[in-house]
Nucleic acid binder design. Structure first.
Lengths: 281, 281
DNA sequence: CTGGTCCTCGTACGGTGTACGACGGCTGGT
DNA sequence: ACCAGCCGTCGTACACCGTACGAGGACCAG
């Protein structure tokens, strides 16, 4: 306020604060637009193709322009992750808790399959608004299984963990690595299909499989594929265990529970969460 | 054979083949030594600190020397991953299949907690020998639950997926991001402890939590932490479901089953798996 | 000694994230 | 109308990355 040259830590000097993104925003750019454009690139060419220069070029602006709207690339990834999470919020939550958990899990799974880059971004502690909305939806379901809040969280986490772990394994065992066959029918993704059943590399298992690893060997001769994609079965087992532990859980009562996501325009809302001066905490 | 100038695709020109690593190996370097040194760096300073130059410097050699033993950095990561997997193979598998699965899962989990970088490396389809050994151990247990090989794989995958998903969430919600507090008592890792219970950023949930997200709000006032670490409970639920689906599963018969990993020196064996000319398939 | 293979590594190129500071245009006070 | 001052843009530069290329030393067989 006094010295104009001093940029200060507040919204003034080169960085707006963390609150709502469009207070004035004379620019047609916004953190959310950056995130969406970055997602477009990541979907089409993989996460590695998302560089600041590339993103800037795709938006028709200079590279450093991005740094006015985003602190650094890490924040861009956070915004992408938030946008990703917002993409699979449910409009209406099924009444039956098993059906509801299954639906949330499968929606999340499909979302990962549509945006494989998200798994690489998932290894980050970011908690954006859509993350909280996602948890809220889970909570709406878990509250029908038990009244203990801690138990609710344990249920939510177990389901979510299974989803993430399973999807991570499936996607990482697909081709997906070589960037040349990007976005090639990512639609239904018959997970079991194209990948080689077992053999990691030609001539490799010949030396390892025969001697030790007898069970793997017999498994291979039995014609099994290492990637049996029965996610639903694993989820079913987990839910069976949860149900057995909570016999009093209410199944399929009347109304489908009001969804936590109120209006669809809220979903994509981008909020820059940080207001610290720099990366150092 | 004819023209000596031609390097050829075989083991001759600049790259040895994929078979056993020390046929002659006049060098004191080896893929395995590179991997171990890289793991040391990653443990101490994070995966981002593992660069070819840094690794070469830590080994006291020139940067490009590494490329004689390793095709590219990707292969180095594969070797690290293989070494990581070899680090938590069981010497003896418990007789009871539930106990065995629990032990394998917890060993894996602890291994991830000791080497957080491994989660970032986990997003890769690499199948090294230790990966196969690991699967073999799982198979040794699952074969006592069912005789259907496909079902065995589903069981294995479900347990493994839960481990990976849970550990990924826990680790990514810890500090772990800022590299300055690396390797700070990674031992017991009371996961619930230090992290802030909910609040993502100060002043953030104030605007989001109150309006929508009622359940999250009430959860917070109830004093719950978002990261209740009950991995064992989730695993228990899953095993309950598996057990219920397989009532004939043999529990705790006599001998503890011969472990698949025969001798400890096999564990760390590094094998370069690729022999393709270059990355392009 | 000579040729060949194994192994090492210096240099260089194109890529990355981003710190710094210059600069134009809009806005508001006078 | 003027002009200070912020908003937003962006060119340049730097350090670092992975690695292609090829020179050259160490060793061994003839």
């Amino acid at each position: 306020m006094t010295a104009p040259a001093e940029p200060a830590v507040g919204p003034g000097g080169r960085r707006r604060a963390g609150q709502a993104p469009p207070p004035g925003y004379r620019s047609n750019l916004s953190p959310q637009r950056l995130a969406l454009a970055a997602i477009e690139i990541a979907d089409a060419e993989g996460l590695a193709a998302v560089s600041m220069r590339r993103l800037a070029a795709s938006l028709g602006v200079g590279t450093m322009t991005l740094y006015y709207h985003v602190r650094d690339k890490d924040e861009l990834l956070d915004l992408m992750w938030n946008e990703f999470l917002g993409g699979h919020l449910l409009d209406e939550i099924p009444a039956d808790w098993r059906a509801a958990l299954t639906e949330i899990a499968q929606r999340t799974r499909q979302s990962f399959q549509r945006h494989p880059w998200a798994l690489n971004v998932a290894v980050r502690p970011a908690r954006g608004p859509n993350k909280l909305r996602h948890i809220e939806q889970y909570l709406a379901v878990a509250s029908r299984v038990t009244d203990d809040p801690d138990e609710q969280l344990r249920i939510i986490h177990s389901v979510s963990d299974l989803v993430v772990g399973c999807t991570l394994r499936e996607l990482s065992s697909q081709a997906y690595r070589n960037p040349d066959e990007h976005a090639d029918e990512h639609a239904d993704a018959d997970v079991d299909g194209p990948a080689s059943p077992l053999e990691p590399q030609p001539g490799f298992d010949a030396l390892a499989t025969a001697e030790e690893l007898p069970r793997l060997q017999s498994l291979r001769t039995a014609g099994c594929r290492l990637h049996s994609p029965r996610f639903e079965q694993a989820l079913g087992w987990l839910l069976d265990g949860i149900e057995a532990a909570h016999p009093g859980a209410r199944r399929a009562d009347a109304r489908p529970v009001d969804a936590a996501a109120p209006s669809p325009d809220h979903v994509g809302m981008a909020v820059t969460t940080r207001m610290l001066p720099k990366k150092g905490a």
